[in-house]
Amino acid sequence: MRRTIVAGNWKMNKTNAEAVEMLTKLAELVKGDEKVGVVIGAPFTALSDAVKAVEGSHIEIAAENMNANESGAFTGEISAKMLTSIGVKYVILGHSERREYYGETDEIVNEKVKAALANGLTPILCIGEKLEDREAGRTNEVNATQLKGGMAGLTAEDAAKVVIAYEPVWAIGTGKTATPEMAQETHKAIRDLLTEMFGAEVAGDMTIQYGGSMKPGNAKELMSEADIDGGLVGGASLDADSFAEIVKAGL
Rank of each mutant, 00 (worst) to 15 (best):
M66T: 03
I61H: 01
H58V: 10
G76K: 13
A73K: 02
A62F: 10
N65K: 13
A63D: 07
E60A: 15
A80Y: 02
M82K: 00
M66L: 08
G76A: 10
E77T: 09
I61R: 02
N69V: 15
L83D: 03
G56N: 10
K81C: 10
T75K: 05
M82F: 01
E55A: 13
G76C: 08
S79G: 01
A62Q: 11
E60P: 07
H58A: 11
T84I: 14
A80E: 02
E70S: 13
I78V: 15
N69G: 07
H58Y: 12
E77D: 13
I78L: 05
E77M: 10
A62V: 02
E64K: 12
A62C: 11
I78C: 06
A63H: 06
N69S: 14
A62P: 14
N65G: 08
A68I: 02
N69C: 09
E64I: 05
S71Y: 12
E64Y: 02
A62D: 15
N69H: 14
E60Q: 14
M66S: 01
S57Q: 07
K81N: 14
G76S: 07
G72M: 05
N67S: 13
E60V: 08
G56M: 08
A80K: 02
G72N: 05
E70H: 05
E70M: 12
N67L: 04
L83F: 00
S57C: 12
N67P: 05
A80D: 00
S57Y: 07
A68P: 00
M82G: 04
L83G: 08
G56W: 03
S85P: 04
I61M: 01
A68Y: 10
G72D: 03
A68F: 13
N65L: 02
G76L: 13
A80M: 03
I59T: 03
H58R: 09
K81F: 10
N65S: 13
T75D: 04
G72E: 01
F74P: 00
N67Q: 13
M82L: 02
A73Q: 10
E64D: 06
T75I: 06
S79D: 11
I59S: 04
K81Y: 09
H58F: 07
M82D: 10
M66K: 02
I78P: 01
L83C: 05
G56F: 03
S71K: 15
N65A: 11
N65H: 14
T84W: 08
G56I: 11
A62N: 11
E55S: 11
K81W: 09
K81Q: 15
A62T: 06
E64V: 04
K81V: 14
E77F: 05
